[in-house]
Design a protein around this nucleic acid. Sequence first.
DNA 1: AAGTGGTCTAGACCACACC
DNA 2: GTGTGGTCTAGACCACTTC
Lengths: 233, 233
Amino acid sequence: MSASPTTSWADIKREVIRRISERIWRPGDLIPGEQELAQEFGCARATVSKAMRELADAGLLERRRKAGTRIAINPVRKATLEIPLVRIDVEGRGSTYRHALLSREDVPPPAHVAARLQLDAATPMLHLCALHLADEQAFAYEDRWVNVAAVPEIADADLETLSANEWLIRNAAFLSGELTLSAAEASTEDAEVLGVAPGAAIFIVQRITWNATQPITLARLAYAPGYRMHTSI
Amino acid sequence: MSASPTTSWADIKREVIRRISERIWRPGDLIPGEQELAQEFGCARATVSKAMRELADAGLLERRRKAGTRIAINPVRKATLEIPLVRIDVEGRGSTYRHALLSREDVPPPAHVAARLQLDAATPMLHLCALHLADEQAFAYEDRWVNVAAVPEIADADLETLSANEWLIRNAAFLSGELTLSAAEASTEDAEVLGVAPGAAIFIVQRITWNATQPITLARLAYAPGYRMHTSI
DNA sequence: AAGTGGTCTAGACCACACC
DNA sequence: GTGTGGTCTAGACCACTTC
């Protein structure tokens, strides 16, 4: 499109979105190839390519070599969740952050923890419980298991000053992880720590992180009632 | 790195990840510029650029023109949540999908719905309640408001055969949206429809979608207990 | 002012999937 | 086979930000 000095990949992206939303191209349609579009838009093929790859990443297009590019039939929209440090999360809400280490024990993991991390039940682990506070109100209760072999330095770390959450991010670069979001009824322990009634509905985030070769940590974060995770699509 | 015929952007990405995880480059460090890295890896600057942009998108690097590229201090990891149709979600779990339309009314929206969608309280809207089932078990209860002006054809749509969820995706390309995840105690209505005890902890997904000019729909999905959202980082 | 990343080009070759 | 998207190159200019 148009009379700008050059056509940018963002222009092309907008134009393709327009054609999809105005149903000029409909779900399932095969659209012209990169070469043809480059000619139409008067730009290099690489520019078209970048625009199309972005739209495919967003789930709006389906591309296959030789088969060409189609408008997705079931656009699986992808939402990007940002997973910040709890401290940053709290501060981002305009509150003052504090954390309290409730317990710290060197103990072997219970079976479900060992299984989840694919570790032997005899593996030495560090079990931490901590409370994250926002303006001195309970914000989230963290129950964490750390694979000591993956980060031996944690044995000497002062986790009262810097939370384990933060210490691990600074001292153990992780490469991959899993995130599970769910709702649960507060256990008596959750309830006591968070100051809510047992059975209250709380938002649970379970996180597992790995480095190149071994699991680093499994953390369960139980958020005080009212917590919402928000994102744009 | 290395003796391959050419160095690919994926090779560079891996090598940078290695340097971060082995702490050769530490959080906060300024790393060499694209030109210098291109020389080191023996490739074009564009190849380095693509690798670095991916790492920056993932939250591992922070890049600014003139200031250069640094290893992120607080790596805000980004998890990508895929938001499929409920039908696809159910079928992906190996169950048989069915849905039932419980109610359909043309009524003006309550204040909180109008406010959330930035619409006037007198705007004509369609209110739908539906149940999504997996193997004939309640899976999710959907409470949806549709802005009829945005998709007038919905007035004549048969939403018993095709769920509103699916009809809207096929007939109203949306451009942007918001997603809010939370935990809630089942209302008496939720409890009755889902067949759980009132007060049970349920996972709630609230979704708002927009086209270019106006809001299309607001949907609240209440999932039966046990539902988990899972993703990799 | 100057240096960084961001974008674009024109061309080439490759890998994969459909035929 | 053959055509599509995926990648890479070498070079150029631009936009932003720090100095």
